[in-house]
């Protein structure tokens, strides 16, 4: 399969932007949709729980996916000279940092 010359820039920026966007979405509860598993119902945006718990995980991923796609597409329009300077390591360094932040944010589960 052939890929465009800008794909590596898209992939690196997407990995970093998606991880950061996901962290923000979880913290601020920017969910594009809500799922109510007890009544098998989807709702647009953030909805309160009804007849059981509300799930925002799908919504957080959807919001992050859209945000990261827009950012990564914009970055893939960068001039080649700038794109070459992009460190490929951002694709793992930012996600690893975000995972560490999640461990910190969820520490209350383990300190009770």
């Amino acid at each position: 399969m052939t890929v465009t010359r800008s794909f590596p820039v898209f992939a690196v920026v997407f990995a970093a932007a998606y991880a950061l966007a996901y962290l923000i979405c979880v913290e601020k509860n920017y969910a594009l949709l809500t799922y109510h598993p007890a009544i098998y119902e989807f709702g647009l945006g953030v909805e309160k729980a009804k007849d059981g718990p509300a799930m925002y995980w799908f919504g957080w991923m959807a919001t992050s996916g859209i945000a990261a796609s827009v950012i990564a597409l914009a970055a893939s329009w960068l001039p080649v000279s700038l794109a070459r300077r992009l460190w490929s390591g951002w694709s793992w360094a930012v996600p690893v940092a975000v995972m560490v932040v999640f461990c910190y944010l969820l520490r209350s589960y383990f300190l009770r």
């Binding site: 898209f10 992939a11 991923m61 694709s91 793992w92 996600p95 995972m99 999640f102």
Partner: peptide, 24 residues
């Protein structure tokens, strides 16, 4: 519950690195 919360977040973060992983 805490380890499951981490599981869901780690899984989501892993999804985001798949394009870069595939490319490299």
């Amino acid at each position: 519950n805490g380890v499951f919360e981490l599981k869901e977040h780690f899984a989501a973060v892993g999804l985001g690195v798949l394009p870069a992983y595939w490319y490299y």
